[in-house]
Design a protein around this nucleic acid. Structure first.
Lengths: 339, 339
DNA sequence: AATACATTTTCAAACGTTTGAAATAATTTG
DNA sequence: CAAATTATTTCAAACGTTTGAAAATGTATT
């Protein structure tokens, strides 16, 4: 209800000194007399002085804000990754603004635009699945604002900073694990081909087969997206040939397995609870399933976030040159569930 | 890599006109000549002029930013509620800054402080479970910045704006549903007593029993928190008496039921798959359980968020007086799962 | 007491916008 | 064609900070 805002000027008038003295006292300048400092700080406290960030930003030509754009907040991978980012950002005096693109290019452009107006000091982004053109993101770098792509990134483009889960290694490990358990017919269910890591995972699968002298069978591979219908039909395909049916599955997302298991149970597949499967993710709900995946590929999202912010901070502080493009890989970890 | 930032002044020099003309042209002032407007707008586009929000905020004495503080982003209730907020905020030209308190008072105070410095135009908050003192939040109202409490709120305090799920009604409905299915021994598992809606839910349960002439049995009530250990022991208690064991459960959070079912299966309770249960939440994961809850109490988080932002916008626009404290209740909906 | 030096405070400009009032230019009117 | 009107542009101050340079004050030295 206070109508005159408490500004430096206001404090200065109260204390009968100049604005600069007040400013310097609050910022603990060595040239300011101790007694004066105390008086100023006390008054500032009493009157609940809160420095106006807009004014400071304007003056300093920076915002101490990091922007984050991601497809959505309903995906645990992303919310977990924010933990990592936030932790290190606040530790270094930065705040974060999170914006969702809802996997829509137009919305992503809007988000980028507002973050640009807010003059964020850096941007961390997981691009939408339709992002082909990068004009809206290149703007940042043109203004000298560093951008770090994480997880979802322009795969063809080497001229950007990236932090990625080592999804090849994760998929290789998962496949290898199943091979070591004696499986010969391991199916692979991949994700939308537009998303860049889909191929890396597939390659992990292929390489594990090859390295272990198993032949590749195209009938054991199916693709789906985030839509359940498509997942079901992908699974139907895999299990259509009665003679050559898989005994294990590797899936690009764990919840595909949930659908798979449910479907197999539904059609009363003779050994639906024998099929061993592994997916990316590490959903705590696994504990509640009757027929849980045998293992999960933990992507360590917090660590991905952590690496992204650390790289970004180095770019902001010019410890790394913006032109020397970095690529950081974060290893996955196979979590074996022994219920 | 552009080192001279593109500002109004810069444009003005290029165009050989005054800064104010440029400003007014970009803001489409009627007093500016059409031809001039076109020239200015074209140049602004070509040079990628981006207005500096800090400068505007400073001048306008507002930020067009809404702050949100919530315990964490791993809880689907909160992430879903953000959808509602975001949608209406952006529609009205506001951006949002999300900050997590991690259910820690100190962190909440920090968040509040940074949002205050950022001079948000309004605040939406779900308080941490330890928030007893509200000095850090009252500051906002002292500066004329409206605050809307949502979901988690100071229950004892009537002098604040609130948007709440009608958790009483939700719990009543759930209990009633089970009664109608013939259950006589319905257990209730409540949440942390610090959280205000725990009691409302309990009252919903009690009232449903009473209205349907079922007697209340204290042995059928247990409390837990977000910790699995405690949940297990709560369930153990409920099922310790061999003679008087519940046939149905209402739980304040759905995942408690997952633990309950798992536990009952584990101890091979004679009718673990007969026990009918209902919890708050509406986790899509339910579809994958062998023994799913019979129904869910959908709390409509998007709608809660929507109501919160709408109320806040009205307060910001002074359509509602800050002193006339509002309380909005959002009804829950019972979702019956017929597998 | 005059000078030198150190300590402390203030001045003034800058950051990038907005906007009412004043100035200027262009057009109409009698 | 001068005066009155209207259209368009510019001036100048303000928003709340920061900060190097200049000014003022205080203290020590001879």
């Amino acid at each position: 209800m206070n109508n005159t805002p408490v500004t430096l000027k206001f404090l200065a008038e109260k204390l009968k000194m100049s604005v600069s003295t007040v400013s310097k006292a609050l910022n603990n300048y060595p040239t300011i007399n101790e007694y004066t400092k105390n008086r100023v700080q006390e008054m500032a406290r009493d009157l609940h002085f809160t420095p106006n960030k807009s004014a400071i930003n304007l003056k300093e030509r920076k915002s101490r804000i990091i922007g984050i754009i991601l497809p959505n907040l309903l995906d645990h991978f992303f919310t977990r990754s924010i933990y990592g980012v936030e932790q290190f950002a606040t530790k270094n005096g930065y705040n974060i603004i999170i914006s969702q693109s809802h996997d829509d290019l137009q919305k992503e452009i809007q988000s980028a635009d507002m973050l640009l107006r807010s003059r964020v000091d850096g941007l961390i982004i997981a691009i939408s699945k339709n992002t082909q053109d990068f004009a809206h993101l290149n703007q940042f770098e043109n203004l000298g604002i560093p951008v770090v792509y994480y997880t979802r990134n322009p795969s063809f483009n080497l001229n950007c900073h990236k932090v990625l889960g080592n999804t090849f290694q994760g998929c290789y490990q998962a496949t290898k694990f199943l091979i070591d358990r004696g499986h010969k017919k391991i199916a692979y269910i991949g994700g939308p081909k537009m998303i860049n890591f889909t191929h890396d995972r597939f390659n992990g699968y292929i390489n594990a087969l090859k390295d272990n002298h198993l032949s590749f069978d195209a009938n054991l591979v199916a693709y789906t997206d985030f839509d359940r219908e498509n997942t079901i039909s992908a699974i139907q395909n895999l299990f259509s040939a009665d003679d050559n049916t898989p005994t294990a599955i590797v899936a690009f997302k764990e919840h595909i397995l949930f659908d798979a298991i449910k479907y197999l149970r539904h059609i009363k597949h003779p050994q639906f609870n024998k099929i061993e499967c592994i997916g990316f993710g590490n959903n705590s709900f696994i504990n509640y399933l009757d027929t849980p995946p045998i293992a999960s590929v933990e992507e360590n999202p917090e660590s991905v976030g952590e690496n992204a912010i650390n790289l970004l901070l180095k770019l902001i502080n010019k410890e790394i040159d913006m032109e020397s493009y970095q690529k950081v890989m974060v290893d996955c970890k196979l979590i074996v569930h022994n219920d």
